[in-house]
Design a protein around this nucleic acid. Sequence first.
RNA 1: UGCCCGAUAGUGUAAUGGAAGCACAUGUGACUUUGACUCACAGGGUCCAGGUUCGAACCCUGGUCGGGCAACCA
Length: 556
Amino acid sequence: MSEEIKTTNFIHDIIDADLASGKRTEIVTRFPPEPNGYLHIGHAKAIHLDFGTAEKYNGKCHLRFDDTNPAAEDEEYVQAIQEDIKWLGFDWGENLFWASNYFDTMYDYAVRLIKKGKAYACELSSEEFKDYRGAPTEPGKEPPGRERSAEENIELFEKMKNGGFEDGTYVLRAKIDMTSPNLHLRDPAIYRIKRAHHHNTGDKWCIYPMYDFAHCIEDSIEGVTHSMCTLEFEVHRPLYDWILEELEVFQPQQVEFSKLNLTYTVLSKRRLLQLVNEGRVTGWDDPRMPTLRGMRRRGFTAESVKKLCTLVGCTKFEGITEIEQFESIIRDDLNENSLRAMAVVDPIKVIIENYPEDRTEEFEVPNHPQKEEEGKRTVPFSRELWVERADYKDDAPNKFKGFTLGREVRIRGAYLVTCNSVDKDADGNVTELHCTYDPETKGGSAPDGRKVRSTLHWVSAKHAVDAEVRNYDRLYTVENPMGDKEKDFKEFLNPDSLEIITAKLEPGLAKAKSGDRFQFERVGYFCADKDSTEANPVFNRTLTLRAPKKVNPLMP
RNA sequence: UGCCCGAUAGUGUAAUGGAAGCACAUGUGACUUUGACUCACAGGGUCCAGGUUCGAACCCUGGUCGGGCAACCA
């Protein structure tokens, strides 16, 4: 799980070529989050690419907050974003930057453009400019202020900066080509008036740069060699290049790749926010959320997230990765790295009638069947046990391996026991199993070598610890909740995505610390929640064991 | 009706002009003191049509299908 898989992709091919040709001698990348939301698994793909590429080429990856829109951003997210990147295991070292640190330079650059006759102040409202911009199929026309003198434009721009105009009355536009087939080249706005308080620059600025103007300059200032972003910015690249060429400054290369899409998952920030605001989930760190904090609380490992990123690779093809692929990676990690424990999630009482009432034995059971070095633990055994309700059937079908009248089964690590009779309530539901054990089978194997078909998990009734167990399942009932144009994605929310039960745990589990992971044998992978205490343990179900191919009554 | 981008088993991804592989998923079987894990085997693919070439998933041309682009968002 820990060994890094050597990978390559079309971006690394570009880098290899740039290194080979001497165009670049070192590699600098950057991850540029806008501090306006929590990071999710889609961001993990970008983080993994940005930081992973820097690692591969012994370069640097900057963490840069793209804080150019004070209206949308909030400092609350800044800390969370850093925590989440660290959790993934990446480190930006000294290279923490802010777009807002470059506002002075950006302003100077804008003035430089104006002086070159490549930018102008435009008094058209956004509504009015729509007409001038034209449509994809028709050329636009030149706005009235387009031929103003540089001197006048500088005056206007300065007045914009100094708060001499109301919000929205002027923008600064790059003067490019109102007939370009690429709409982004039809005199795009590069500065807008927005008299908002900025978390970093306070009230210094009444104008803020637009993404297209800011981002390329940020990259250029930082000496970023390869600026990776998602496909929707492909059509912005000519503008990115135009600005830096006109400014005659260092020119990074923007390279676009496709976003991550996962089945049964919605990653749009806006929709995630809706789930939180409408109380469909308990918060950004709800274990059903695809946020990094949600997944962390669910019990997913950072290694698994990174492995998924490696596996999906980096291409320009916009596909959708099956969630099963991710689940498989997580199970693989958890199977390898989590200790085993016994917990009964839907308990039914077993009474071993030929076992003394006052007796308790301690049995040693392995913590990990494939890793002897993980050692053993002891679990108490007594006359009354809890076992899974689903492990008993009156009329056992051929494939059923659990308790049925007269069949001997193994109680893991303890004895072979046989169910002789059952009690039922008025509705016919089984309430208790009456069994006998074979004292000769201590440890679970018979001296005469006879075999049993199954090994069941159990917990001693008088030693058991009650715990709240939160069984999480997929948040949606369909693969692509966004795929129906008629219906809102929330209509596909899975009503059973959370089931809270009380389970019976082996006593040692009460000491679990928040974040500790276990495999509850034959049930699934669980981790102690942050709400968990020794007195009131709480466990989150990370995943069930692998989905049954045939019959497994314990799994939904 | 404009411009840009993409297309390899069900899904994701390799092969960069020289035997189409891998993982997940699916099916069958073995093993098992977890119906897990592990192991073995099986099925299944280059969007279409031309062209270049001894040879094309890869290069060229034309189509088809899918995605993106007309915030004072990023």
